[in-house]
């Protein structure tokens, strides 16, 4: 399980889990789940183009995810109908589909976009992920209080002279960054489930924002570690386990919240 070829997988997925758990906390409390889903999948054409051209995918993925973040920020991440998000998503998927139809290993490529190729992680990739995750962690630490305040009330943030719109855009860019780091390794589906599942439970298990954020990271780490162990022992695709765990975490959170409400009422 900890053979040489697995070590990089352990390190890379752990790094991704730390970043996804942190960013995911704010994705969940800000109600930005659709954006967090659309940004990784919106980078699909970038990944497909990189494969076609035979180059490293990072820059193209980053470009598409960043473009998506700016576009969604302009249209308003919480816009009532989400139509801009939905149309951005399907356009990018269709474009990626067109690019991939040029390739022979078409079906494997589609699979890799969604679920990653975590066992083939090189040392360079680990370093690249570590760098992106470090940037993400620093950015989240810087924006921690302004994000909390503007999530609580955009009016209060504006009255405290915070650039509310710029912070919202910056946050989507951070989501895009995490996504770009994770996409080639664990795929769009897994990074999304890692963002929303653990955080959705953590926010209901404690009343303190800082603890909830930390708990979200711990739950995300435990999810990827169990997923890797299961992938190794039972040959489950890690995407399957992470997706199922997302739903399990949500259910656990709702039960904890329900129980604590009952205790409080006596």
């Amino acid at each position: 399980m900890f053979a040489d070829y697995m070590i990089n997988a352990w390190i890379a997925t752990s790094l991704v889990a730390v970043a996804a758990g942190m960013v995911g906390f704010f994705v969940v409390v800000r109600g930005a789940a659709f954006a967090a889903h659309a940004l990784p999948l919106g980078a699909f054409p970038g990944l497909a183009a990189a494969w076609l051209l035979g180059i490293a995918p990072w820059s193209l993925i980053l470009a598409f995810a960043g473009l998506g973040a700016f576009g969604l920020a302009r249209s308003g991440e919480k816009a009532p109908h989400h139509t801009a998000t939905a149309l951005w998503l399907v356009s990018m998927l269709a474009l990626g589909n067109l690019l991939l139809s040029r390739m022979h290993a078409y079906s494997n490529a589609v699979f890799a976009v969604l679920f990653g190729e975590v066992l083939g992680v090189s040392n360079t990739q680990v370093l690249a992920v570590a760098a992106i995750v470090a940037v993400t962690v620093i950015a989240m630490a810087l924006l921690y209080r302004p994000l909390l305040l503007s999530t609580l009330s955009p009016d209060l943030a504006a009255a405290a002279a915070l650039p509310e719109r710029r912070i919202a855009t910056l946050f989507l860019l951070i989501v895009a960054l995490v996504t770009s780091a994770a996409l080639p390794l664990v795929g769009a589906s897994i990074v999304f489930s890692l963002m929303v599942g653990p955080a959705s439970a953590a926010r209901l298990m404690t009343d303190r924002p800082g603890w909830a954020l930390g708990l979200s990271v711990l739950l995300a780490l435990s999810t990827v570690w169990s997923a890797l162990a299961l992938a190794y022992e039972a040959d489950w695709p890690i995407g399957a386990f992470v997706g199922v765990m997302g739903a399990v975490w949500y259910g656990v959170g709702r039960i904890v919240r329900w129980q604590s409400g009952r205790l409080r009422r006596g």
Partner: peptide, 24 residues
């Protein structure tokens, strides 16, 4: 509404996860 979107997201992750298992 934000909670409804979150549940949709959780279902989506679950659906993709199960798809991954079966397609695999």
């Amino acid at each position: 509404r934000s909670e409804r979107d979150l549940v949709a997201g959780i279902m989506l992750g679950l659906g993709l996860g199960v798809s991954a298992l079966i397609l695999g």
